[in-house]
């Protein structure tokens, strides 16, 4: 299944990465090259194989319900490219 320009634009929008027309053409060639190479995986017989999600083979540890963090907005906002008081800011969103 080859990626057409519309698909490139759709996933670029999903990923929130702006792509120009020239870039779409280049990406289409590159991504189709990679996806074409990946198609080799269709040779593999995976019937009856349980998927492996992660490399860690253990049960999830849980932590106690204790407040150990927060309390100070300063370090949270220290790297903010834009802020208003102790809020982060973005262009007005219309819901």
């Amino acid at each position: 299944m080859a990626l057409d320009p519309a698909t490139i634009r759709r996933i670029a929008r999903l990923a929130r990465i702006r792509v120009g027309d020239a870039e779409v053409a280049r990406l289409q060639a590159e991504l189709n090259g990679i996806m074409g190479w990946i198609e080799q995986l269709n040779e593999v017989d995976v019937s009856g194989v349980a998927p492996l999600t992660g490399a860690a083979q253990m049960a999830l540890k849980m932590r106690e319900d204790v407040v150990t963090e927060g309390g100070d907005p300063a370090p949270i906002l220290a790297n903010a490219p834009a802020r208003s008081g102790d809020y982060f800011t973005v262009p007005k969103v219309v819901e």
Binding site: V67, T68, E69, G70, G71, P73, I76, L77, D86, Y87
Partner: peptide, 17 residues
């Protein structure tokens, strides 16, 4: 995370990284 959940706290005062 270990940040508190109380309602009505000062903005971004109950936030962990």
């Amino acid at each position: 995370s270990g940040a508190a959940t109380g309602f009505g706290a000062a903005p971004n005062s109950q936030v962990s990284f």
